[in-house]
């Protein structure tokens, strides 16, 4: 079952399925969200937005709307 990263719970590891087409897709790809990349939400800001995502070996903070441009599936 696939879902977008912004709606995922913290603490579970997911695999990137694809980056949805948008003006940010090339940027997100450069930040390491290629298909098959392991990602995990480490923690969320108050109000649940933005979120801190572990992308491989580093932590990226992103807005929920930006995270929802990334389709993930359970590992």
């Amino acid at each position: 079952m696939s879902q977008t990263l912004g709606f995922c719970a913290a603490g579970k590891v997911f695999k990137v399925k694809q980056v949805l087409p948008s003006v940010l897709s090339s940027k997100l790809l450069e930040m390491g969200f290629y298909t098959g990349k392991e990602v995990e939400i480490l923690y969320k800001a108050p109000f649940g937005d933005p979120i801190a995502v572990r992308v491989g070996d580093y932590v990226l903070s992103m807005r929920k709307s930006e995270a929802n441009l990334i389709e993930v599936e359970q590992n």
Binding site: V23, L24, K27, L28, M31, P50, A52, Y58, V59, L60, S61, M62, R63, E66
Partner: peptide, 9 residues
């Protein structure tokens, strides 16, 4: 310019 928040922690 595109606006985005992506910021490394």
């Amino acid at each position: 310019e595109k606006s985005y928040f992506l910021l490394e922690i």
